[in-house]
């Protein structure tokens, strides 16, 4: 069974986006890059994306600018198998990328039951929210910013039953955010 982990930026009250669909409160910095890098293993992990995160990532990580500024991460992003969940995209241009043919839950169940390395969801809050509701996530890496959103969308809002977790790691980051790592 392949291990499915997520790396998600959250507000302190558990929201992955505000009511404008934005994460404008978050300041990207070298620490989140390092955390992203750690999530991109050399051994060919699979990355899952929602359409919005995919489009944001390809716009940057597939460019020459990304390869010159962050060669290691850009290379691993390019080499990783990437699967995009979208009802509207019909083609994808990034190398090693395909659009999922099945529903999210079916596709992820299939992927997890096959042989292979780790599966990681970077960002893609909509995807994480649905996978969380279906108990398909094995560990959560939550980068929690020191802000409480007045209006936002909860990452765990789809849960119908309590999900017990086990704390693996908690540590503050330099920018005032923190990392919480839980096993589901």
């Amino acid at each position: 069974m392949r291990h499915l982990t997520t790396f998600t930026i959250l507000s302190l009250n558990g929201c992955y986006k505000d009511d404008q669909d934005g994460i404008g409160w978050h300041n990207h910095d070298e620490e989140d890059l390092e955390l992203s890098r750690q999530n991109l293993r050399k051994d060919g992990s699979t990355l899952l994306f929602g359409r919005k995160t995919y489009e944001g990532f390809v716009d940057f990580w597939a460019t020459d600018a990304a390869f010159s500024a962050f060669p290691e991460i850009a290379q691993r992003m390019r080499d990783a198998e990437k699967i995009v969940f979208s009802r509207t995209l019909s083609t994808v241009s990034w190398q090693n990328t395909r659009i999922a043919q099945n529903s999210l839950v079916d596709e992820v169940r299939l992927l997890k039951s096959a042989e292979g390395g780790g599966i990681t969801v970077l960002g893609s809050g909509e995807i994480v929210r649905q996978l969380a509701a279906h108990r398909l996530i094995d560990s959560y890496q939550l980068l929690v910013d020191p802000v409480i959103l007045a209006r936002g969308v909860s990452l765990f809002g789809g849960l119908e039953q309590t999900q017990q977790l086990t704390l693996l790691e908690s540590r503050p980051l330099k920018n005032g955010a923190m990392l919480l790592h839980y096993q589901a």
């Binding site: 302190l12 009250n13 558990g14 969380a132 409480i148 959103l149 007045a150 765990f156 809002g157 789809g158 849960l159 119908e160 039953q161 309590t162 999900q163 017990q164 977790l165 086990t166 704390l167 839980y182």
Partner: peptide, 14 residues
């Protein structure tokens, strides 16, 4: 170490 999906918030009045 638990998520419950819905409940009593303290930040919802902001």
């Amino acid at each position: 170490p638990v998520a419950i999906g819905s409940g009593m918030p303290i930040f919802a009045e902001l």
